[in-house]
Amino acid sequence: MQKVDIAISYYGKPYQTMVTLFSLLEHSRDYVDKIYLSIEKKQPYRDAWEGVCKIKEIFEKRGLIIVHPERFVPWMSDVNPNGLDETTRLSLRYQYALEKTDKPYLLICHNDMLYRRDLIGPMLQRFAEASANLVGVGRIGQCWNCSAFFAKKCNPETFEQYKPTQEELLRQMDEYPTPREQRDRKLVQEGFIHPLPECRLNEYACLIDVDLYRQSTIPNGPVPYFGGVWDGSDTAAAWFRYSYLHGLKIQNFYYEEYADHAPFSAVSNGNDADNNRFIYEDIERQAREYMIKHYHPDEYSTATKLQIAKMVAEKKIDKWYSKLRNRLKR
């Protein structure tokens, strides 16, 4: 059986992360070897750091590798980030796993997923049946942000066929404004017309051909990194565009038949929780209850409890010193 590695970027949501990993392994364990959990240096809330200790205890024996990037570089604003030193490059979202895995395929996924069926097997089957140059399989397009979708001109299955003029796209934006209209309009005016600005391979759950990725991305090829984006756009939009323009194929795969994104959110949106403590705590509470009911009690070893206590104490001291320094500056 073909083994794959997993890449997850950790930005808060410890209980949702554990549900993601438990449910993924429940349905796809035979395919999974290593899990790269990349911890972003900036976290939304303190309990996110405490959650790392819990995740490590439960999943390290299941192939988990905790990655602490040396810099905080979740993405690059530059569409073509040439000349990055290794430390910065490996700090890009998912890049460490994309460079370090020894597997031919890497599953990239969010840390707020609930898997209901195995999707790795069907994704691998797509690669087995495809012609050459298939670099990625997953849900194509952020159609909910795209005027062409609301104009009923384009969808994930037809993005290759729909090749509008610049004037047509700008007219659609007037008629069907979207949340990122200003940024998308600027890109279209600069000539970024096809693929459309909101076309990407969604990172919620997608499978990447590692060798093709490495051959085509900087410095070996002209394609920007998966984590290198246009300022104001989203992860992998720039990678998607330049991969497509340089002859690589990306195939649509509706992950919704196999998994739910942000299952504990009323609007299936993970971003709201990052900026709203009330929403965050409510979603985490539901994820914790789900984990206890289906997978694992929220109980940990003495060593982990001591590590968490030490971490909390250090954070309190850091906060106290920060307040003291601010007072002394006045």
Rank of each mutant, 00 (worst) to 15 (best):
Y115F: 15
R116P: 00
L119G: 02
L119S: 07
I120R: 12
I120P: 08
G121D: 14
G121C: 15
G121R: 13
P122A: 07
M123D: 05
L124I: 02
L124N: 10
R126H: 11
A130N: 03
A130Y: 01
S131E: 15
S131C: 03
N133C: 07
N133L: 09
V135I: 15
V135G: 06
G136F: 09
G136D: 08
G138T: 07
G138C: 05
R139C: 03
I140C: 05
G141N: 08
Q142H: 10
Q142I: 09
Q142L: 13
Q142G: 12
C143T: 13
C143R: 09
N145W: 04
C146L: 03
C146F: 04
F150T: 02
F150P: 00
A151C: 01
A151N: 03
A151G: 04
C154R: 07
C154E: 04
C154F: 10
P156G: 12
Q161H: 15
Y162P: 01
Y162M: 04
Y162C: 06
K163Y: 00
P164A: 08
T165M: 11
T165V: 09
E167K: 15
L169F: 08
L169I: 08
L169T: 01
L170K: 03
L170Y: 04
R171F: 07
Q172S: 06
M173A: 02
M173N: 02
E175C: 02
Y176C: 00
Y176H: 13
P179E: 11
P179T: 12
Q182M: 12
R183L: 07
R185P: 00
K186V: 12
L187A: 08
V188I: 14
E190S: 15
G191T: 14
F192L: 12
F192T: 03
H194Y: 10
